[in-house]
Amino acid sequence: MHRRPLIAALMLAALGAAALPAQAQPAARAFPEKPIRLVIAFPAGGPTDITMRQLAENAGKVLGQPVIIENKPGAGGTLPAQQLQTVQPDGYTVAQIPLGVFRLGYTTKLNWDPIKDISYVLNVTGYAFGIVVPADSPFKNWADFVAYAKANPGKLTYGSTGTLTSPHLTTELVAQRAGIQLQHVPYKGSADLTLALMSGQLMAGADSTGWAPYVESGKMRVLNTWGDKRLARFPDAPTLKELGYDIVQNSPFGIGAPRGTPPEVVKKLHDAFKQAMDEPSYLAALAKYDMVPIYMGSADYTRFARETVDREKAVIDKLGLAKPQ
C-alpha cells in the first residue's frame, strides 16, 4: 500500500524534469573537444603537404585543438573525399578536396555523390603548374618537345601526380590540341615524380612547382606554365595561352567535411581555417611554390563544386575517358 504514493511521486518528478526549459538542460559540449584530423590527397614532403601542414598548425591555434595531417595519396587524389563517406559527420575528420573529385562521377562507378555527400567548408588555394624536363634533355623549348612527339608518336614519356589529376588531364588536352601522342606515367605525388625525372626514368614531368628548386639550381628546365600570366620566378617560361592553347589551369582546392556535419560545426571550421589563411606563415608557405590564397566561403565553394562537376564533363568527354555506360 505504501508503494503507490512512492511510484506516483517518482513519475511526477520525471515529468517535471522533462518539462524544464531548454536553458535548464545541460549545455551541449563545445566543438572541438579533441584533435581534428585533416586528410590530404598527396604524400608528405610535396607542395600540398607542406602548405596544408602550415594551414593546419595555424587553424589548430584558433580552434584550441591540434589539427593533425594524415596523408592518403593515390587514386588521383580522391581517397580523402572517399574517406569522408565512412566517418562520423561530427567535424573531427575533414579532407582536402582536389579538383579530381569532381570528375569521379564520369570516370568511376560511385555509390556516393561528390556534391550531395560532402559539406564544403571553404576553398583555400590552387596550384601553379608547368611542364619540366631534365637539364640535359634535348628539349630546349616547347617547340622541340612537340617536334619530337610528332616524329615519335607515343614514345615521349611524361609523369604526373596521378591518373585523372589536373596535370594529367591538362597535358592530354594540350597534346590533343597540338596533334601529338604522349605516354603517361602516374605517380602518387611530387616527390616520387621528381625522383623518376631526375633518375632518367621519364623524359618530362607535369606538376605543380615542387620542381622550382631544381629549375633554379640548373637541374631542370621549365618548358611552359599554366597560369593566366607568366610566373614571376620563371619569366622566360611561356604560358599555355602564349603558346596558342587558350588553357589556364590552377586547380583550386579546399576542405570538405562529411555530409550531415552540423552547420554550426561547419561554420566554426570555416572561421578557423579562414583566419589561418590570413596568417603570414601560411602566405609564406604558399609563396615557396608560387601559390596564392584562393578563398571561397562555404556557399561559394559549394556553388563552385557544382559548376565544376558540369564543366569537367566536357573535358572528360573530349578526351574519351568517360566510364562505359
Rank of each mutant, 00 (worst) to 15 (best):
G74P: 02
E33Q: 15
G60H: 08
Q65I: 03
A44Y: 14
Y92H: 09
G76M: 06
T48N: 14
A81F: 10
A27I: 04
N71G: 04
K34W: 05
G46S: 08
A81I: 07
Q82H: 13
A81P: 14
G45F: 04
Q54L: 07
I36G: 00
P26M: 02
I50Y: 08
P47Q: 05
V87F: 13
P47L: 05
A41L: 04
V39G: 08
A44Q: 09
G77R: 05
A75E: 12
Q25Y: 14
L104T: 09
A41D: 11
L38Y: 05
T48L: 12
A56S: 07
T78E: 11
L63Q: 02
T86W: 14
G46A: 05
V62E: 15
A27C: 00
L99D: 13
Q54A: 09
R53A: 07
G91C: 00
P47F: 05
A28Q: 13
Q83K: 13
F31W: 11
A24C: 08
R37I: 01
L38F: 04
T86F: 15
I68R: 07
G46Q: 05
V67Q: 07
G60I: 04
A56F: 15
Q88K: 11
K34G: 02
L104Q: 09
G60P: 09
A28L: 06
G64F: 15
K72M: 11
T78N: 09
M52L: 15
T51G: 09
A27T: 01
T48F: 12
E70W: 05
V62R: 13
L55F: 12
A24D: 12
P26Q: 02
G77L: 04
T51A: 08
D90P: 07
F31S: 05
L38T: 00
A75R: 14
E70N: 07
D49A: 08
A59D: 06
A28H: 10
T93C: 06
I40H: 05
A27N: 00
L55E: 03
A28P: 13
F42T: 06
K34S: 01
I68N: 09
F42C: 04
T93Q: 08
R103W: 11
L84I: 01
G91N: 03
Q85I: 01
N71V: 01
K61R: 15
Q83S: 11
P80S: 02
A95F: 07
Q82Y: 15
P26K: 03
T51C: 03
D49F: 14
D90C: 03
L63S: 03
Q85C: 02
L38I: 00
I50P: 12
A81Q: 14
F102H: 12
Q85Y: 13
N71S: 02
